[in-house]
Design a binder for these strands. Structure first.
Lengths: 344, 344
DNA sequence: GATTGGCACTCGCGAGGAATGAGTGCCAGA
DNA sequence: TCTGGCACTCATTCCTCGCGAGTGCCAATC
């Protein structure tokens, strides 16, 4: 028995099924792919593949359908991620150029990715924790009220209004601003919080130049903003109308997915850990953490400046999806997105 | 012929149909609502209502279903917007409290609204054009590169990176900042742009203190950001999984809606002009601008600080929806949202 | 004149059943 | 190890038919 041909049969089944959405039979297989053997032979291979759990029949007199395990083998061993064509690359570049701010970049990315793959696209905003502090701005709104704006290397901007325990003069504000920027500027978020805490201590009673808690209040707000993992959960979703092509089973497949897409925490868990360096993760059906989503797959990867993954991006679709195409698109968009963050 | 009873019949039909999603017949109507007349009488009324175009039969031997015109009459003349219960009010308040920034407020609002109405909720971000400038911040990223942050009264923050034609000193930057804030601070966006243009003129060659185009560059970026209507199109959408309850006709009803929900321009056009002062707009089926959405209705209203509508918010759902409930929820959320913007 | 009971009529829907045919498994022969 | 042949399975499709909800109309009644 030739094992190579068996794999070829599996690949053919996956490809046909993805295209037609219908169980594929031995005869059609032989006709469409030049396998060079008779249907009966293919049937034998199919029986073997079924024994090993790579394919199943929905019912006795129907063709075969790949199982999750079958898709897995297909993705792991039978797929070569074909690079995007020059035209596609140009399309990506021109689509993402001209974005004015981070919001815009992320929104455009979801749109682009969903158009390329005809799936639902998900792009996570760069997480705070892996960013560095570019600048902290303090604006006096009132004598005892400051607007604090935290600007990060990834282009993210966090803002908080800080109520001060006592009023602050312009000079003191100027001072505070430079001290804070001196301590935190350029630092990673994680270390910045420590540095800032040290600054705050210097100005807390009974220290020499206590300032009545003004510094402490500002630092508190900053640290709070920095450690606010809630805002790590920001994601943009695009192309939900592609769910229409899910075809069958709205209630069992589409509805749970729509729900997951709104629950950003769930969604991020579904996407999994960000992987850097052009590595694309594929999660097939029940491999994911949620049973309700057992008929959806996720193709994801990380992106970020300088090959360091600061966030995740990917597509979500039916297990019956075009994995090679999706993987290529996800990788390409992640690459361009990383480049944009590099330049910023 | 009693016209009052005919209206009562229409109301009963709408209410029953909304609840059961099935055509309602004369017998069931009499049984469920204490109309005090016989089915035959109701049938006569129904025939009259059908002649006038308020209801139809999907097929000969079925009950009646309200037409768009029927819903319209129901909304206009047969609906009393019942205020929310105390418990619901508390729920709204506690749900919206604790939001840290504008993004958060808007996101929470969509979630809240979709939960209250079990429909798709849409909340537009406060438009730039009706906001006033709270503060403009300039941060030197490099000698010839500034980060400009525009902070508005509604809590919105716009940012742009500005490339300068020549480098700028700290003092000049300080100067520029105060001049710009002096000119634009507190102004409405529309007038602020004019004021800023005047400032820029003063510093353009061949004026006395020309600065090589630095001021002009910054003002340009500001004016551009202020007149960027693209960012007026920002909306948040929530509760799309409620579309699952659309039941019938995924392709003809749900898919176009999902597409519209992604096209923010389309979506805003669908929501229509923001109406202030507790007035809730209802658009039923084909009354809207898009044929594909002829089976969806929109319930919307404006919100903003001080009873001035700076943005729109509402729900989108099947024409067969609970109008009184949705109207009440939309009005209540708009009211709370306005209050929050007032306080900020 | 409005209301009501009666009655014939319509027609969508679901059940039951037969024909269809795609696809399979197995076996014997090359 | 492959192939052709053959019997078998069973989902799907199509048809028919009876049921019943619901209607419209009419004559009688209040």
């Amino acid at each position: 028995m030739q094992n190579d041909r068996r794999l070829a049969v599996l690949r053919a089944i996956v490809e046909d099924y993805v295209r037609t959405e219908e169980p594929v039979g031995s005869k059609a297989l032989v006709e469409r792919h030049g396998l060079g053997v008779s249907p009966a032979t293919v049937r034998n291979d199919m029986a073997a593949l079924e024994d090993e759990g790579y394919i199943t029949q929905p019912h006795t007199s129907a063709g075969r359908v790949p199982t999750d395990k079958g898709y897995r083998l297909f993705v792991d061993r039978l797929t070569t991620v074909k690079p995007m064509s020059a035209a596609e690359k140009r399309a990506i570049a021109s689509f993402l150029d001209g974005a004015v701010d981070l919001d815009d970049v992320v929104t455009r990315s979801t749109r682009l990715l969903s158009q390329l793959t005809r799936q639902v696209a998900v792009v996570q905003y760069p997480t705070l924790s892996r960013s560095t502090v570019r600048h902290i701005e303090l604006v006096a709104l009132a004598p005892t009220r400051l607007l604090m704006v935290l600007i990060l290397s990834t282009g993210r901007v966090e803002q908080r209004v800080v109520e001060l325990p006592e009023s602050i003069t312009d000079e003191a504000l100027f001072d505070l601003r430079s001290r804070i920027n001196g301590a935190a500027g350029g630092q990673q978020i994680s270390t910045a919080a420590d540095e800032l805490a040290r600054v705050a201590e210097l100005f807390t009673a009974p220290a020499e130049h206590a300032d009545g808690g003004v510094t402490a209040a500002v630092v508190d707000a900053l640290v709070e903003a920095m450690s606010d993992h809630r805002s790590d959960e920001r994601v943009a979703v695009g192309g939900t109308s592609n769910l229409a092509r899910f075809g069958d089973s709205f209630d069992t497949a589409v509805r749970p997915l729509l729900e997951a897409l709104e629950e950003h925490v769930v969604l991020l868990k579904l996407m999994g850990e960000a992987t850097a360096g052009g590595l694309v993760t594929v999660r097939i059906g029940a491999e994911g953490p949620y049973q309700e989503l057992s008929s959806t797959s996720v193709v994801a990867t990380g992106y970020g400046p300088g090959d360091e993954a600061v966030a995740t991006l990917g597509v979500v679709g039916p297990t019956r999806m075009d994995y090679p195409g999706s993987m290529a698109a996800v990788r390409a968009v992640a690459r361009y997105l990383s480049r944009i963050l590099d330049e910023a």
